[in-house]
């Protein structure tokens, strides 16, 4: 057996053993200082019931903030609005992106051009996009109503009618993230072995069948990844509402999302502890949904395994 004197010496062995940690250290430091520490801190802050925010002195701890949160009609509304948005916007935006990705994947002309165009909204600042949208949707001077007028449709109060808030946010979410999701889907589509399709064609499978029985199952991990990131994105909805509705949470609070609620509590009401408690609840909700998604995927995999092993 060949022995290597150098690597056997204790200090080098130690260094080799922890080499990975050394590489990770810079990133870990940044994450700890800017992510983990604030998370812990805000979690703790959620339990402050009497404190001096500036001096960081806490006089009393308790569950009051969480209790108040549960009783707060606004928080319930924020959760309801966010959930509704997530339920509608996330699946829709994934479906639409998949559709566009499949279209782009079928050797059409100017594919790169389309791809770039779809990607533009993603790289544009959300604030700029929201300002433009607010003008397009303006009741009296907006582009949308001007076009609708040509078709004889009556003026629609897009931004002041509470019923319009959800549809607008859904469309904005689909449009804004389209380019990004299409790219991810395209990468997934490229990874599918073309022989599956050839085999299917030989068996006479139609386009629809090929899509549902080859493309979709093969894209499983991609869909899963996107569903998680999209849901988290939707849960973070804030800037578009804040800008588009001129620093109001939409007409009659129809655009009050959880993040908006937290922002409002913190910056406008200066209820720091309540905001901390709310952000912790948001963290828990996102965590729960993500775990749920993992669970579903595992169940599906298990089910597939059983079916194929039979």
């Amino acid at each position: 057996m060949r022995t290597n004197r150098l690597t056997d010496s204790p200090p080098v062995r130690f260094a080799l053993r922890y080499k990975a940690w050394l590489y990770l250290l810079p990133a870990l430091l940044v994450i700890t200082v800017f992510q983990i520490y604030p998370i812990c801190k805000s979690f703790l802050m959620g339990f402050y019931t009497d404190f001096d925010y500036l001096k960081d002195e806490v006089y009393a701890w308790g569950f009051d903030n969480f209790r108040n949160l549960m009783r707060d009609a606004d928080f319930a509304l924020a959760i309801k609005n966010t959930m509704r948005l997530a339920l509608v916007a996330a699946p829709l935006s994934i479906a639409v992106s998949l559709l566009f990705a499949v279209l782009l994947n079928s050797d059409i002309r100017c594919r790169k051009v389309f791809q770039s165009i779809y990607f533009l909204p993603f790289v544009t600042s959300m604030v700029a996009v929201s300002i433009v949208w607010a003008w397009m949707l303006n009741k009296d001077f907006g582009l949308v109503n001007a076009i609708l007028k040509v078709f004889g449709v009556k003026k629609i109060a897009w931004l002041t009618d509470p019923n319009m808030t959800l549809p607008i946010l859904v469309v904005l979410c689909i449009w804004k993230g389209l380019g990004y999701r299409v790219i991810i889907f395209l990468a997934g589509l490229q990874g599918i072995d073309p022989r599956y399709y050839q085999a299917a064609r030989l068996d006479g499978a139609r386009a629809m069948n090929r899509f549902f029985h080859i493309t979709l199952p093969q894209l499983g991990p991609t869909v899963f990844f996107l569903s998680i990131t999209t849901v988290i994105d939707v849960f973070k909805t804030f800037d578009e509402v804040y800008v588009m509705y001129a620093k109001e949470p939409g007409p009659l609070k129809s655009g009050l999302t959880i993040v908006y609620y937290i922002f409002d509590k913190f910056y406008h009401n200066w209820s720091f502890a309540a905001a901390a408690a709310a952000s912790f609840v948001l963290f828990l909700i996102v965590l729960a949904i993500t775990l749920l998604q993992f669970g579903v995927v595992r169940l599906v995999a298990l089910y597939d395994e059983r079916r194929t092993s039979r």
Partner: peptide
């Protein structure tokens, strides 16, 4: 009233 109480604990 709730808002006032809350604002006064920080």
């Amino acid at each position: 009233q709730k808002a006032v109480d809350e604002a006064r604990n920080s």
